[in-house]
Simulated assay, not measured.
Amino acid sequence: MIPFLIKMIIGIALMIAGVVAGVAWIGFCFGSVIGVILILIFAPPLLFAPFGLSIMGLAMCTTALSRD
């Protein structure tokens, strides 16, 4: 029961951190016009890079649910 709760709490925290970091990153990128133009031209996947934390959190939550 305790490992389940710990995994769920860590998973939810990672999802929240991913969303917060992603929104802050997109705000930073679009705040600097030259930066977002360069990112969109040379590395479009880099624009959504911080949202990977949310995927890791979701994976941790699903493993916690499937094991117990």
Results as ranks from 00 to 15, higher is better:
2 I>G: 00
4 F>H: 08
5 L>V: 08
5 L>P: 05
5 L>F: 07
8 M>F: 14
8 M>R: 13
9 I>K: 11
11 G>N: 10
11 G>K: 02
11 G>I: 02
13 A>S: 13
13 A>Y: 11
13 A>H: 12
14 L>N: 00
16 I>N: 02
18 G>F: 03
18 G>A: 03
19 V>A: 07
20 V>S: 08
21 A>N: 07
21 A>F: 06
24 A>D: 12
24 A>N: 11
24 A>C: 05
24 A>Y: 15
24 A>S: 01
25 W>E: 04
25 W>I: 00
26 I>L: 03
26 I>K: 04
28 F>I: 00
28 F>K: 07
30 F>V: 07
33 V>D: 14
33 V>Q: 15
33 V>Y: 15
35 G>P: 08
35 G>F: 14
36 V>T: 00
36 V>E: 01
37 I>G: 02
37 I>Q: 14
41 I>F: 15
41 I>T: 06
42 F>P: 08
43 A>H: 10
43 A>L: 10
44 P>A: 00
44 P>K: 08
44 P>R: 05
46 L>N: 05
46 L>V: 12
46 L>S: 12
47 L>W: 15
51 F>R: 00
52 G>Q: 11
52 G>H: 13
53 L>F: 09
54 S>V: 05
55 I>H: 02
56 M>Y: 12
56 M>R: 09
57 G>W: 01
59 A>V: 02
61 C>P: 10
62 T>S: 09
62 T>D: 04
63 T>Q: 14
63 T>E: 15
64 A>E: 04
64 A>L: 01
66 S>A: 06
66 S>L: 01
66 S>M: 05
67 R>F: 11
67 R>A: 15
68 D>P: 08
